[in-house]
């Protein structure tokens, strides 16, 4: 994929940033609420900033707050973080054919910046827009998300105190609504509908599993159904 070299870096960077903007808007309330709730749940000011800077994983950070509020021991929170973030392994695996073309110098930071949002944006570039995932495109998306997350954490930490009830406003609906917008374009075939319905159904049924294991179980079931459906359909020779 020598195309990587021929696409102008600036336009790739800007395209990555532009296509990430809607997701940034969806992530703003999420980040601000995190910053606001962190100190309420017993995390210090510095630790809140450090968590966003060094861990950089929104849903795991939220779950950590919930566990901290329940006075959970830190090793349990770390174990839960591991399970909650396991989906990034699936993302990394999906990106492998593209990452192959990238320099080894940029892989460590790019891996650190892998999130639900950046994964969705770069995969959309490939599967919907039929364009290669260039390093500048990835950087444009990743850096925009990262900067936004830090800013929002800080805003929540400082200005959030003036709005103590912010968590009750329902602003956290921004995350599911963003994800719904990212999911719908995939629903173009019967197999995708099955993947979504099975994964969604299992996630509800398995919700009570410890350490948020339900998410991974649900995703695994959905993926398995997709593969099974594909095998059955190709064996029959019908499409």
């Amino acid at each position: 994929m020598a195309v990587t070299k021929t696409r102008p870096p600036m336009s790739e960077l800007l395209a990555g940033m532009r296509n990430t903007t809607p997701l940034v808007i969806g992530a703003i309330p999420f980040g601000v609420i995190f910053g606001t709730l962190a100190t309420v749940n017993g995390l210090s000011f510095q630790a809140t900033i450090a968590m966003s800077v060094f861990v950089y994983a929104g849903s795991a950070q939220f779950i950590a707050l919930g566990l901290l509020a329940g006075a959970t021991a830190w090793p349990i929170i770390v174990a839960t973080t591991f399970v909650v973030n396991l989906r990034h392994l699936l993302y990394a695996a999906t990106l492998v054919p593209h990452v192959k073309n990238w320099s080894h110098l940029i892989r460590p930071p790019f891996a650190f910046w892998l999130t639900d949002e950046t994964f969705a944006v770069v995969m959309n570039r490939w599967s919907e827009q039929k364009k290669p995932i260039t390093t500048w495109y990835y950087f444009g998306s990743a850096f925009t998300m990262y900067l936004n997350w830090q800013l929002c954490t800080f805003i929540g930490l400082t200005a959030g105190r003036s709005f103590p009830n912010i968590a009750g406003w329902g602003l956290d609906f921004a995350m599911p609504v963003t994800f719904i917008g990212m999911l719908m374009p995939y629903l173009k075939s019967r197999v995708m509908w099955w993947v979504v319905l099975i994964s969604g159904g299992v996630s509800v049924l398995a919700y009570a599993l410890p350490h948020k294991l339900g998410l991974m179980l649900a995703a695994a079931c959905g993926i398995a159904v997709g593969v099974l459906f594909e095998i059955l359909v190709t064996r029959k020779g019908t499409r």
């Binding site: 999906t94 995350m175 994964s199 919700y207 998410l215 649900a218």
Partner: peptide, 20 residues
């Protein structure tokens, strides 16, 4: 082949519990 189902499967597994 399985990996192409990763995005919709994970998104659904996050969306369903948070809305239902």
């Amino acid at each position: 082949r399985a990996l192409q189902y990763v995005p919709p499967a994970v998104l659904a597994a996050i969306i369903f519990p948070s809305t239902l």
